[in-house]
């Protein structure tokens, strides 16, 4: 009884709070402050067609480093917690059911296409919506599909760890290169490479390189998390 009363009071409280927020929203007809600066300067200064990318990768590159670190720590935490338990108690290899024929055939057909789409997303990060994180997540979902279709499927841990570490290190190195070449406010500056022609795939300086590194890192990290989760 008292539990339900408490829940109801909490609900009313939340409603009041959210209504306060909602009633204060006014639709803005134009950009203001820093967002206007980003929108106006992004295309001409950095040569990116997608403004979100120019903000995520260059203007707020340091925040992206934080984001990458959070994901890295999460993946490491999962690996440490779940791998140790696996070593303690030997894996029980119970007879598992094979996945269905439809799933197996569908996976064989779709996996290359999904991986290609993921790569497309992060290579075109400066031109179209999406980027390293989204592309990486799509690649990880392809690996997930492989796990689902074949219960004995194993990923190459050594290779995945090497890819993950190298892309992380190169990401930070490119970031520091920006600091060295353009001054203290320019962590992760894409102008270390020529900007190229606006709207083509090899444009926007180092952004395709940076996003490929981020995509590989995120993809391998999420795939390792899934792999650790899956193991018994």
């Amino acid at each position: 009884m008292i539990k339900k009363l408490f829940a109801a009071v909490l609900l009313v409280f939340m409603t009041v709070m959210l209504y306060q927020l909602y009633s204060n929203i006014t639709e803005k007809s134009e950009l203001s402050g820093v967002s206007r600066g980003y929108a106006e300067r992004g295309a001409s200064e950095l040569g990116t067609q997608n403004i979100v990318t120019s903000i995520v990768v260059t203007y707020r590159g340091l925040d992206t480093l934080g984001e990458v670190s959070v994901l890295f720590i999460a993946a490491t935490g999962v690996a440490v917690l779940l791998r140790r338990r696996k070593e303690d108690e030997p894996a029980v290899t119970a007879a598992k059911r094979q996945s269905s024929e439809i799933l197996q055939t569908g996976t064989r057909l779709l996996t290359p296409i999904i991986i290609m789409f993921g790569v497309y997303i992060f290579i075109n990060g400066h031109l179209s919506p999406g980027g390293g994180f989204q592309g990486g997540a799509v690649i990880a979902s392809a690996v997930l599909l492989l796990f689902l279709s074949d219960i004995n499927y194993k990923i190459n841990h050594g290779l995945f760890n090497v890819i993950e570490s190298f892309s992380g290190v190169f990401y930070v190195l490119i970031g520091i290169l920006g600091l060295l070449l353009f001054g203290v406010n320019n962590f992760l500056d894409n102008r270390i490479l020529p900007l190229g022609e606006f709207g083509t795939i090899l444009s926007a300086g180092a952004i395709p390189v940076i996003y490929s590194l981020v995509g590989l890192k995120v993809g391998t990290e999420l795939a390792s998390i899934i792999d650790n989760m899956k193991k018994d």
Binding site: P129, G130, Q134, L144, I226, M229
Partner: peptide, 25 residues
């Protein structure tokens, strides 16, 4: 669209499956 892609891939795809794995365990 950028946020939509992230939400679809991570929210609807990966996290659902991680929940399913946890449930299985």
């Amino acid at each position: 669209p950028d946020v939509a892609m992230t939400e679809a891939a991570i929210g609807a795809g990966l996290s659902t499956l991680i929940f399913l794995y946890a449930l299985h365990k």
